[in-house]
Simulated assay, not measured.
Amino acid sequence: MQDVENQAAHIAQDAGDAITKGAQDAGAGIADGVQQFGKGIADGLEQLPEIKLPKFGRGKK
């Protein structure tokens, strides 16, 4: 009976390890995707022409 319990414990441990690794891999993949997305936005913004806005507020009277 103890062999069955040990075997079940090992199966549960292996399943837990696999779930943990899968979650870590998914988290790393998401982080990489967000980083690449942010870099794409930054690169796109660098390509936009500089916009010069008129100054408002106190000026010549």
Rank of each mutant, 00 (worst) to 15 (best):
M1R: 12
M1Q: 10
M1K: 08
M1P: 14
Q2N: 15
D3N: 14
D3W: 05
D3T: 10
D3G: 06
D3P: 09
V4N: 12
V4A: 13
E5W: 08
N6M: 04
Q7N: 12
Q7D: 06
A8G: 05
A8T: 08
A9E: 09
H10F: 13
H10E: 15
H10I: 14
H10P: 02
I11Y: 06
I11G: 01
I11P: 01
I11D: 15
I11F: 12
A12R: 11
A12S: 04
Q13F: 07
Q13P: 00
Q13R: 12
Q13L: 06
D14F: 04
D14V: 08
D14K: 06
D14M: 04
A15E: 14
A15D: 13
G16N: 15
I19D: 14
A23M: 09
Q24E: 12
Q24P: 00
Q24I: 10
D25C: 01
D25M: 07
D25K: 03
D25T: 05
A26R: 10
A28Y: 09
I30P: 00
I30G: 01
D32Q: 08
D32K: 12
D32C: 03
G33Q: 11
G33N: 09
V34L: 13
V34G: 04
V34D: 11
V34A: 13
Q35E: 14
Q36V: 04
Q36R: 07
Q36I: 06
Q36T: 08
Q36P: 00
G38N: 15
G38E: 11
G38I: 05
I41E: 13
A42V: 09
A42W: 01
A42E: 14
A42L: 10
D43M: 02
L45N: 08
E46S: 10
E46A: 12
Q47C: 03
P49S: 00
P49F: 02
P49E: 04
P49I: 03
P49G: 00
E50G: 06
E50V: 11
I51Y: 07
K52P: 00
K52W: 02
K55N: 01
F56H: 04
G57K: 00
G57W: 07
R58F: 14
R58P: 03
G59T: 14
K61R: 07
K61A: 05
